[in-house]
């Protein structure tokens, strides 16, 4: 009897099993638009690009398509070693990442900390204000910033000159073009700021009180409570920022629709070079290989982040 009961508990009757299967099928049916989209527009192109990276695929001459083994990767390697377009564009992207990621993360965190202050009036207003640039299309905001940063008649130049300071030529000076794009990017840190803010608001106040009781000041509270408690958010934002840099294209392309990375190649981002190879020179096979190189670089960066995260990311309640 007991055996029978146990059996009845662990083996659902046929009607229950059929219900579970039906629910699964319905779930899959409702998921199917997304699944179809994932397979058709993401998974297949990924596989296709991997296959194409081993071919000489020319978009205008698909009839001459043939398998060329690792030729594209060899060429890429040579261009990397000889500071060709690959080396140059990777350098531009790396320099941009080194400037924009720490600056963006620091400023977003700083703004979130400010907006998390109890004494600040008009929090909602400021949150909206800082988030609003995220809603503006990238192309439009880049065009506006081109005018704003113009070294001759731009507002910033006029303000700087009013204080007797020199105004950089930003997008028209090879030395200032990248910092100009970094500045433009900072305008759009509202999203990152909101994520930080959500993290900050999830920190239990008791922890701050405990530090206070122990005689800790502002820095101690930030160093020993805020930073560890938001470290998962910090980790997430850094990862997203690195991925964002690896996909950086639109702003640089708006500034130089010719795709030359003007002025003087100073804004020739990796994806601009990839675009040129694929669309200007028709070398889709080589462009696919370039895309895979970037994927590998991002995966390595992500792995490094994940591997080091055990040392600096604190998950409350998680086993160390």
């Amino acid at each position: 009897m007991i055996e029978e009961d146990r059996h009845s508990i662990y083996t659902p009757p046929p009607s229950t099993r059929s219900l579970a299967r039906r629910e699964t099928l319905w779930g899959l049916a409702f998921l199917s638009p997304w699944l179809i989209g994932l397979v058709v527009f993401t998974a297949l192109p990924i596989v296709a690009s991997l296959v194409l990276s081993f071919t000489n695929f020319n978009i205008l001459h698909p009839e001459s398509l043939r398998f060329i083994g690792f030729d594209n990767y060899n060429r890429m390697w040579n261009e990397l070693l000889n500071n060709g377009a690959v080396g140059q564009s990777l350098g531009v992207t790396a320099r941009f990442a080194l400037m924009s990621v720490p600056l963006g993360i620091g400023l977003a965190l700083g703004l979130a900390l400010l907006l998390n202050q109890k004494l600040l009036a008009g929090k909602s207003f400021f949150r909206t204000l800082f988030f609003m640039p995220v809603l503006i299309p990238l192309v439009a905001s880049t065009i506006v910033w081109q005018g704003f940063l113009n070294g001759s008649t731009g507002w910033l130049a006029q303000i700087l000159r009013a204080f007797g300071l020199p105004a950089p030529d930003w997008f028209y000076d090879p030395s200032w073009a990248l910092p100009g794009l970094v500045l433009l990017g900072i305008w759009g840190i509202g999203n990152m700021m909101l994520i930080f803010l959500a993290g900050l608001q999830g920190i239990p106040t008791e922890l701050y009180e405990a530090v206070k009781v122990d005689g800790g000041g502002l820095w101690a509270r930030f160093r020993h409570v805020t930073l560890p408690m938001i470290s998962p958010v910090l980790f997430y934002n850094i990862l997203i920022a690195i991925i964002g840099v690896s996909q950086y294209f639109t702003q640089a392309y708006v500034i130089d629709p010719g795709g030359n990375g003007r002025p003087g190649g100073s804004t020739l981002f990796f994806n601009m070079n990839l675009y040129n190879e694929g669309w200007s020179y028709n070398n889709m096979g080589y462009a696919s290989a370039l895309a895979w190189l970037m994927l590998i670089i991002v995966v390595i960066a992500a792995l490094v982040l994940f591997r080091t995260s055990a040392r600096w990311v604190f998950y409350a309640g998680a086993e160390r």
Binding site: G259, R262, P263, G264
Partner: peptide, 17 residues
């Protein structure tokens, strides 16, 4: 197209550098 892009990159520096 490649040659054009390359000389254009250089030419762009004439008015910027």
């Amino acid at each position: 197209i490649k040659a054009q892009n390359d000389y254009t990159t250089v030419f762009s520096t004439l008015a910027t550098k």
